[in-house]
């Protein structure tokens, strides 16, 4: 088996480090917004940390919105047709 980059992070402690680095990055980005002067097209963009907040909020809206959507639109896989592509089953290698 070749060297697997991902396996290195399987250990929970190492994964925690990765997460920590990520949180740190978020913090740095958040702070950097106050230090760097931004050129803006719109007023709304000028609020400090507009992008951070917008990204966080909008992502949450997408997740919750899609759950509402699923509540109304989810059907069984063979809803349209017993043999529709959605419900086809394969095992390894027998699909072309």
């Amino acid at each position: 088996m070749q060297l697997n980059f991902f396996k290195y992070f399987e250990k929970p402690s190492r994964l925690k480090v990765v997460l920590l680095v990520f949180f740190l990055l978020c913090g740095v980005l958040f702070c950097a917004d106050f230090l760097i002067e931004r050129h803006v097209y719109f007023d709304v963009e000028a609020y400090s940390n507009f992008y951070s907040v917008y990204g966080f909020v909008m992502f949450s809206i997408i997740i919750f919105g899609s759950r509402v959507l699923r509540f109304f639109l989810m059907r069984k896989e063979n809803y349209y047709d017993k043999k529709a592509v959605d419900s086809e089953e394969y095992s390894e290698g027998d699909i072309n």
Binding site: F22, L25, F30, Y51, S52, G55, F56, F59, I63
Partner: peptide, 10 residues
């Protein structure tokens, strides 16, 4: 990066 990282945070 702000947009993407905070979305990932979410």
């Amino acid at each position: 990066l702000q947009l993407l990282c905070f979305a990932i945070l979410a």
